[in-house]
Design a binder for these strands. Structure first.
Lengths: 338, 338
DNA sequence: TGACAGCACGCAAACGTTTGCGTAAATTAA
DNA sequence: TTAATTTACGCAAACGTTTGCGTGCTGTCA
């Protein structure tokens, strides 16, 4: 790997001159500049970003920490963040933290060590105290899940309203036996989705049946077994709400295995809106997430934070950006058979 | 951000001692080491990786360059690469290059500037000459698509055999009007998949009909319009092979819109194997890709290259790792109606 | 012709680390 | 007690850049 010094000694000029030349700064004559650039090109000189970063105190990395890049929602985020980084000359540091607090902490630490300009993080349900401390050291934006004890710069969804709307829709069709298989990630999103379900039920004067609700970590497998159990039971529900995309995958599989007809035997509402929901038979009614909007908000948000930091604005007003989920009606629900 | 020098002056010791203490190196007394570490903890000292990297000439980044992180296949790769990086103490630099050669070049450049330890890249169909030059400077592994002119350290699939098997399967069922909607990305994968189709046809003594083949960039939209066109035509095929996951999404949508029954009116074989294929009605027969195996190969491969580089082995024997695609039979194909 | 500006370049310090070497003290061996 | 060895620390150079300042040089304007 050849350095500025190599170039300077090879050309008999000082390193300063070479630096100014390759950076297009003033203070070098045209002739000299050309000579230097030509030589740099020829020898394949590539500036060392670490060295440059140290000297300039500039930062060129953005960190993204998410539970699972394979998840539709998170890779949508990654995609828009990556695009924006490209445009703005940043590089994207990606980390799958698997919802494990210890891993998460070490990843955040590594990012701070790498002197990232900012971090977008969907934290695990119970982040360590040190994770929170570390996140305070750099402009960071919390995606989906708020971290307790951290000043709120966050992009979150109104999970509650989506599921509430779903429940109300089914109630409106006349269902009284509505099952809910959702996620239990301890603190925020799982709980607030479930809340939508419980609230809607309560508003209709109904009490939730334990046999008809299941709260599990968001894995397809969990959806599969929960729904299978629910529908091999003596009195299965006539309608079913699935509380995450993963769980929807598993839940639908269970229904298919059991040969239960949708919507004739059971009305189903899925979560999220991957393109394939509409390819199913019947096309799946779902709670559509404002993925694109949320991604956009998050990405804009983190860059705004970074800008603030650069401008030396210590703590401007912090913000929480909400996006609404809404119900997308297709063909997988109908009035219950009497 | 506090530095080693801050610590050293605050404690009245030399920076060297602090460095040795926080790194757990020998040459510091126990008492002094404790004092230093306690102070470091208290003041929230975080080592600067750039500085450390410069001095040690170590590298801590791995670059991943792919066309689109939202694609099932690529995020599977990203996922295993991220996990491995975590275990080995690397950070993952992710870049969506959108199959644009210019972006790709600038991303590769940025990664070399950042002094990545290695790069895994699915190059665009026609990478620039400079991209190839840059890739020679660091241990790099080509995923799926081989880059002409670059020494082959690559993990590729046998795309041809998968589509060939699909075609043969349909021929075996008695189909003579088999459509193929595939990708046209100029050089490798699109062409080799199409080759499988053409070869199987030729082996059966048949000539491909222009009206029944379409080669487009891998976007769902393209699959949609191609299939729509094919099936609004006077003489549509009785069987259909879809040559990429994206195209499968669009193609299925077109069939659904047109109300064409699968497999009664047309037998369909999709590409790739996302979990939802089996949720469709009928469950979709598909060419299953060895995603996990390929990811594993790629990741192991790049770390092997890095190891080689560290050991100073200039050019060991290079390798190309092949993984086979195979046909996964489900319910979306049947013998043609006469 | 003298003063002054503007330009092209070199010098050296700085960014935050690590590490080889030197030295003094402490420990061990004889 | 003395010599040899080990240990604990500091000094200073190095990694590859950038940048403020200084120094000549050329050119312009009174």
């Amino acid at each position: 790997m050849i350095t500025i010094k190599d170039l300077s000694s090879k050309l008999g000029v000082s390193p300063s001159t070479v630096s100014r030349a390759v950076n297009g700064n003033s203070g070098v004559g045209d002739e000299m500049r050309n000579k230097i650039c030509r030589m740099a090109e020829e020898l394949g000189y590539i500036p060392n970003l670490s060295a440059r970063q140290m000297q300039r105190k500039s930062r060129f990395l953005i960190g993204l920490i998410i539970p699972d890049i394979r998840n539709h929602f998170y890779n949508a985020i990654a995609s828009v963040l990556a695009a924006r980084c490209r445009d703005l000359g940043f590089q994207l540091l990606l980390s799958n933290a698997d919802d494990d607090p210890a891993m998460e902490e070490s990843q955040v630490l590594a990012m701070v060590e790498a002197r990232v300009a900012g971090i977008v993080i969907t934290a695990s349900p119970r982040p360590t105290e040190r994770t929170a401390r570390l996140l305070k050291m750099v402009p960071s934006l919390q995606l989906l899940r708020r971290i307790p004890g951290l000043t709120p710069a966050a992009a979150v969804m109104d999970d509650t309203s989506g599921i509430r709307a779903a429940t109300e829709h089914l109630l409106g069709l006349g269902h009284t036996a509505i099952g809910y298989v959702g996620t239990s990630d301890g603190i925020s999103v799982g709980a607030s989705r479930a809340r939508g379900y419980f609230e809607a039920l309560a508003a209709a004067g109904m009490t939730p049946q334990p046999a008809w609700t299941a709260l599990e970590p968001p894995r397809a497998r969990n959806g599969l077994v929960a729904v299978r159990r629910m529908f091999t039971d003596a009195r299965p529900p006539t309608a079913l709400i699935l509380g995450s995309t993963e769980i929807t995958v598993g839940g639908l599989r269970a229904l298919k295995e059991l040969g239960i007809a949708v919507p004739d035997e059971v009305s189903v509402i899925g979560y999220g809106d991957p393109r394939w929901y509409k390819l199913l038979t019947p096309a799946l009614t779902c709670v559509r997430l404002p993925v694109a909007a949320l991604a956009e908000t998050a990405v804009t948000g983190v860059f705004r934070l970074i800008q603030r930091e650069q401008d030396g604005i210590e703590a401007g007003e912090n913000f929480v950006a909400w996006s609404d989920a809404n119900l997308l009606l297709r063909r997988s629900t109908s009035a219950p058979k009497l």
